[in-house]
Amino acid sequence: MVIVNEYGDLLYKSKTDSRKNGIVFAILGILAFVGANFIYAKAMLIIIGVIFLLIGLYLLLFKRHESISIYTHAIVLNLREKKIVKKEDIEHITYEKVKTRKSPVASYYPVLGLKNGDRVLINVAFNDVINKDFEAVIKSYL
């Protein structure tokens, strides 16, 4: 006996980008603490390290539950509360381009345009290098 989910088959499941940012901030905070031992002005670097570490811990502890699941009939966003966007409620999907100064590759974030006029940002980036499976699923979704 096969158990079928009420939203259809699972096409994609992932955590959002906030977890990666939390890890980066925590590592920068730890490096600032270690680097403070090697310079003369220790207090300033320790303060910067504490700030980075607190931001990283906030992102890891309070935003770690943010995830996305794409099913054949709905997209489930687990942010602070669970948000379900049914496929028939989506009018179109647009992509917001984000290009950083140091990266030669631009990243795109999908934005769901709903029939009631609302917009829902999906916090998972894709480009030519990362998240190719997410790109294939989201572009073929409608």
Rank of each mutant, 00 (worst) to 15 (best):
K82T: 06
Y58G: 03
I90S: 06
R80F: 04
L77R: 11
F62G: 04
L60T: 07
L59W: 08
E81A: 06
S67H: 04
G56D: 08
I70W: 08
N78W: 02
S67N: 11
K97Q: 13
F62S: 01
F52C: 14
V98W: 05
V50W: 05
L79D: 08
Y71S: 00
T100C: 02
Y95V: 10
E96R: 13
I68T: 11
F62V: 00
K87S: 02
F62Y: 07
L54N: 01
S67T: 13
L61F: 13
I75S: 04
I90N: 08
I75H: 09
E66H: 06
L54V: 15
K87R: 15
L59F: 14
Y71I: 00
I93F: 09
K82G: 00
A74D: 01
Y58E: 03
Y95C: 06
K97F: 05
K97S: 10
S67G: 12
K83L: 15
I84S: 02
L57T: 09
L54P: 00
D89P: 05
E91Q: 15
E91A: 09
V76R: 01
H65Y: 05
K63D: 02
A74C: 01
D89S: 15
E96A: 10
T94R: 11
T94V: 14
V98N: 07
L54R: 00
E96V: 13
L54H: 01
I55L: 10
K97V: 14
T72A: 09
L57M: 14
I51D: 05
R80W: 05
F62E: 01
A74Q: 00
E91P: 02
T72S: 12
L77K: 06
K82R: 10
L54S: 08
I93D: 09
D89F: 13
V50G: 05
I84D: 06
L79C: 02
H65K: 15
K86Y: 14
V76M: 02
F52D: 10
L61H: 03
E66I: 00
H73I: 03
T100S: 12
I90Q: 07
I51H: 03
V85R: 04
T94D: 14
L59Q: 12
K97C: 04
V50P: 04
I68H: 05
L79N: 11
V98C: 04
Y95T: 09
R80S: 01
L77N: 09
L53G: 08
E66C: 04
V50S: 12
I68G: 03
E81I: 05
I51N: 05
A74F: 02
V76Y: 02
H92T: 15
L77M: 13
E66L: 01
K99C: 08
H73D: 15
T72K: 10
R80Y: 01
V85C: 12
I51R: 03
V85P: 04
L60M: 13
V76A: 04
K87Q: 06
S69I: 00
K99W: 06
Y95N: 09
I84L: 07
L61M: 11
H73T: 13
Y71W: 01
L61T: 02
L59A: 03
S69C: 09
K87W: 03
L57C: 12
H92W: 12
A74R: 02
S67D: 11
D89Q: 14
S67K: 14
